[in-house]
Amino acid sequence: MTEFLEYNITLNLPNQLPERQLIANTINPHSYCVAKEDEVFNQALLTSDILVPDGVGVVWATKLLYNRKIAKISGFDLHLHFLELLQKNGGGRVFYLGSSPTTLFLIRARIEREYPKVKVGIWSPPFKEEFTVEDNQEMISKVNSFQPDVLFVGMTAPKQEKWVHYNKAGLDSKVICSIGAVFDFYAGTVKRPNEFWIKLGLEWLPRFLKEPRRLWRRNLISTPKFVLEMIRIKNNLF
């Protein structure tokens, strides 16, 4: 599993759209732990073209194990990067797949204000544990009929990464990013912690205090497990 940290972490984001399809994902201590138990999710992360360190735990682990100093790059940063890239280069097309219609309408309205050269397509898939073949065909059809330069998928991890992993060959988009909670942050339906907490590397704390029932496993189980595993790996490697 250390290949995530040693080989796959991306430190520089592209400054132009790729010629071939590019898959971008994020990794944090919780997704690391989930991937250990979920082989499809594991493969989805390992085969990413871009895998950004979306968590101070990953930054710390990379320094601990390989003495590499890297910066945290959040899913929110990844999202803004591609919007700004399209705006700067004369415009483009983005598609948001996931979340509720209300959230998607708010996202589109904000992009129309902030990135007027960027055209937006949206689709809210059904909220269910697993999609049917018909669901998948409809989702792929909605994306491909819009022909986006960038497809943002927001269905929560690991569902979103696995969906992209299974369906990427049929998706007509130059870039595909799984960014989960960013949909709600950007729409304003969920408030992102302010810059004070982000700079301290404690963005997780206000979110946990606000939604302990949803985030307790991530912060109270996955994070300690991740820290202990990194220390064990450190002792085994050196």
Rank of each mutant, 00 (worst) to 15 (best):
E138T: 15
K128L: 04
V150K: 03
D77I: 10
G98M: 03
F183E: 05
F226I: 04
R108I: 00
S178Y: 04
F95R: 05
V175E: 01
F146E: 10
R110M: 05
L106S: 06
P158K: 02
E229V: 00
N219E: 14
R113W: 02
R110I: 03
I198P: 05
N8F: 08
G92Q: 11
I27M: 05
L85Y: 01
W123E: 13
N235K: 12
A24I: 07
L215M: 15
N15Q: 13
L202T: 13
K199D: 13
F41S: 01
K199Y: 12
L202A: 15
R108F: 04
V58N: 00
N28A: 09
Y66M: 03
K191C: 12
L228C: 11
S141Q: 14
F196H: 13
K199I: 07
K117Y: 15
L83A: 08
E138V: 14
L86S: 12
S178F: 02
N67G: 07
R214P: 08
K159S: 05
L46P: 05
A187T: 06
N136D: 15
P125I: 07
L104A: 06
N89K: 14
L65R: 00
A61M: 01
K72F: 02
C33E: 13
L205I: 13
G121F: 10
F185H: 07
E39W: 03
T189A: 04
L171G: 00
I140H: 06
F95G: 08
V175A: 06
Y186C: 08
N144Y: 00
Y66S: 02
L22R: 05
I179K: 00
S99R: 10
T156I: 00
L51K: 01
T102N: 08
L51T: 04
K117Q: 15
F41M: 05
I198Y: 13
T156V: 02
F208Q: 12
G170T: 03
P18I: 07
T156F: 04
F127Y: 15
I23D: 02
F152P: 01
T189C: 09
L5V: 08
N144W: 06
E229Q: 09
